[in-house]
Design a protein around this nucleic acid. Sequence first.
DNA 1: TTTAGCACTCAAAAGTGTAGAGTGCTAATC
DNA 2: GATTAGCACTCTACACTTTTGAGTGCTAAA
Lengths: 348, 348
Amino acid sequence: MPLDDRKKQVLHAIVDDYVSTNDPVGSKALIERHNFKVSSATLRNDMAELEKLGYIEKPHTSAGRIPSDRGYREYVDSLMTVEKLSDEEQEAIKSHIDSSIDEVTDLIKNATQTLSETTGFVSLSMSPRLRKSFLTQLKILMIEPGKALVLMVLSAGVVKDKIVRIPNYITDEQIFKISNSVEKHLTGKPLDEITLITVESSVDNVELPQPLLKQILYEAYSAIKQADELNIYLDGEHRMLQLPDFSTMGRARELLGTLSDSSMVAGYVNEIAGEEHSGDGSYMIRIGQEITLSGLEDCSFITATYNLTDSISGNIGVIGPKRMEYSKVISQIDFVTTTLNENIKKLN
Amino acid sequence: MPLDDRKKQVLHAIVDDYVSTNDPVGSKALIERHNFKVSSATLRNDMAELEKLGYIEKPHTSAGRIPSDRGYREYVDSLMTVEKLSDEEQEAIKSHIDSSIDEVTDLIKNATQTLSETTGFVSLSMSPRLRKSFLTQLKILMIEPGKALVLMVLSAGVVKDKIVRIPNYITDEQIFKISNSVEKHLTGKPLDEITLITVESSVDNVELPQPLLKQILYEAYSAIKQADELNIYLDGEHRMLQLPDFSTMGRARELLGTLSDSSMVAGYVNEIAGEEHSGDGSYMIRIGQEITLSGLEDCSFITATYNLTDSISGNIGVIGPKRMEYSKVISQIDFVTTTLNENIKKLN
DNA sequence: TTTAGCACTCAAAAGTGTAGAGTGCTAATC
DNA sequence: GATTAGCACTCTACACTTTTGAGTGCTAAA
């Protein structure tokens, strides 16, 4: 059963007030701050109803109400309106973004930092998912006896490298031949189609014993696979300590503890990035318990997607308290992401 | 005036007790836990004396005493004895260290993480100071029109690269020529002797208009300079929240706030790394107010040095509460650093 | 359906009292 | 002269109580 208009207004007002004051909001306070045309008693009835429906809850008997996860969800899905940032706000953000950066990775980092700075929350970004990108160059370069560098240039303009160990007595020339052969066969192939077998079968006519050759090719292969790995970058963890929501040590500890395990967070982000976008916007929101990472029960997580190319993208987002100004934060993420996308385009 | 033997014992005992209990220690408690041959009244006199000399202090009138910065300093300099870690402790550390890593940078990171994990404090490392290292290879590789990669291999086995922008219509061949020419002239030169002039004068006989050539060489130069920059890596910040010393939000906030400005921390570490080592060991200790970073007044900072080669080194260390088991932490750092040095050696 | 009024609830803040650990000082003792 | 026992005094931490005030749900009237 859908909420009637006034109940929607009440819920809207409760969320707004709670977000701005951090105090459970009661019927009287509601009347004072908004001009409802009815009395507090009426609102009390509405609030009782909203509570029964699960949109709001009481911390204890004699306190006001606070939005439940479901209440926030309703707010986010149908109540709030997302406005564009004012010119000043846009300027403030732009002043943090360094568009003179020449490497995509740094551009993304910079945007992530900006996001934390402007929202005051933790921000994060995932490295682009490069599975679909293809190799445009692959070189194996001798560094010194026993050590070589596998250097890859990917279609998205991303450069990756990895130092690998090779048998000591392999010569410059041999490596050079292998490098050329591998490059010729693998250029143009998407990363996710490159297997150990593809790599191994890409070399012929090199006068080296099979086991040695195999070893080198295995190293090359593992370098390629490593280029495909997802990295996560987190920023502004300390800002969470400034928030009243995490002013009790326990909560803060748990939160930062969880965030410190970056591979776990990365796994989670990757997981939800795989799910389809929730309808309307270009962003995705998880509220409270919807986040299945322990210690983030009081947080909300908003992510957006940036694009390196049409088919290669990554995520950027913030983790803040559930009690946040959703519409504002969404505008901020949106703006940062848009700016980031523009700057990425400029690199090509 | 030097302390007499018993006063030294008293100070030693106070530090030990305070470190282990986190309670100001009184004369009675001291008698109970240690077998002094004198009465509590005598200790009270000694303690009054120690306080007058500035080694210990009272949080308030009716509390026990806690060591002052000076007290810890005396303890660290002349009272404590540093023992080797037990076999089990060594094993525990070794189990965290991944000696299969092929890149120095990762090896250092891994050691830093291990250090935080074993001490339970924040750990940090500075990237090696590469000023004195020299180029063994330098290549400029075309990535796509308008974009090139400057790739440097340094004497320490470190590889650095940077994407730079070049004029659009520069060809593969032209870049190749420039690359060769620059490499020939710069190979073997220490980074800190390479100036823009050195780079510019390293190319001759390239049929390109001067301004274009200059632009490319400038980019190459800036890539080289960037390779020389110091990076800091911090780990385990969240662990500070577990410590009783930072159980009040205020302290923790300040601490993590300061640590989040990594360039400031890097600057400080670099500064003190420049000062000469304080005598005996291979480590360096800063206690409390001796640290001139705001928010770290209640911390101590212990650093050690790792070596890539004889002349190229970096720092690794921990930041923990002033109230720490100095001898133990020192052994831990020492062991981790030694192990790191061994693993670095194995890479070559 | 809305409203005024009222009794009831409960957390947070402020106040009170006590226990305990510690101190400094003095005068006696080794 | 150093050491000790004894004692009055100090001050925090903790537990306990009281007060305050915002908020609720319910009832009866509009």
